[in-house]
Amino acid sequence: MLRLLCAVFTVFPALAFAETFERPIPQAQSATAEWLFLGASLALVASLVAVHVLVKRR
């Protein structure tokens, strides 16, 4: 198997070289994503308050 790989890389040397890493460009958040994040954050806070109230009763 190793001999086969060496033969392939000898015949096609471009296969042995890796491409350079290109950093992904971050995309800006849309207004919809920001509103959904706000809603999820408020739901999390409300659930934490509900758990606090339930645990405090016991």
Rank of each mutant, 00 (worst) to 15 (best):
R57Y: 08
L48N: 14
A31T: 09
T20M: 06
P24E: 02
I25T: 15
V51S: 10
P13S: 01
M1K: 01
F17H: 15
P13G: 01
F37I: 08
C6N: 13
V8F: 07
L5T: 09
R3W: 00
F9T: 10
L15F: 14
S30F: 00
L5M: 06
L54Y: 03
L4S: 00
T32G: 12
V11F: 12
V51F: 05
E19M: 06
R58T: 15
L2G: 04
E34C: 09
V8K: 08
A18M: 10
V8D: 08
A43I: 01
V53D: 11
E19R: 13
W35R: 13
E22N: 10
R23F: 11
F9E: 13
F37M: 05
A31P: 01
A50E: 01
A7I: 02
V8N: 06
L42I: 15
L48T: 11
P13A: 01
S30A: 04
A50Q: 09
L36M: 08
F9K: 09
L48E: 05
C6D: 15
V53T: 12
T20V: 04
F12Q: 13
P26Y: 06
F37E: 10
L5K: 02
A43R: 01
R58C: 03
L4I: 06
R57C: 08
T20K: 10
A50R: 10
V49P: 01
V8C: 11
L42E: 06
A16R: 03
R57S: 15
L5C: 07
V53Q: 11
L5F: 11
H52P: 00
F37C: 12
K56C: 10
L48H: 07
L2K: 01
P13D: 02
L48K: 01
P13R: 03
W35A: 10
S47W: 02
L42K: 04
V8Q: 09
W35L: 13
V45H: 02
A18P: 04
V45L: 07
R23A: 09
A40N: 09
A28G: 12
A18L: 14
L4C: 02
A14T: 08
V49I: 14
K56T: 15
L15N: 09
F12E: 01
A18D: 14
H52D: 06
L2E: 12
A31M: 00
E34Q: 11
R58G: 08
P13V: 03
F37W: 02
A40F: 05
A33I: 00
P13F: 05
L54I: 12
A28D: 15
V11K: 07
M1F: 09
V49N: 04
A46Y: 01
L38R: 13
P26W: 05
K56N: 14
A31S: 08
F12A: 13
S41C: 10
A18N: 14
L36A: 07
R58N: 06
R23Q: 11
R58H: 09
A7K: 03
H52N: 04
F12P: 03
M1W: 11
A50P: 02
F9H: 15
T20D: 14
L38I: 14
S41D: 04
P13E: 08
E34P: 00
A50I: 03
L42P: 02
S41M: 03
Q27N: 08
A14V: 12
T20I: 05
Q29W: 09
V55G: 05
A40S: 13
R57A: 15
V45D: 04
Q27D: 14
R57M: 12
S47E: 03
A33W: 00
C6G: 15
L5E: 06
C6Q: 13
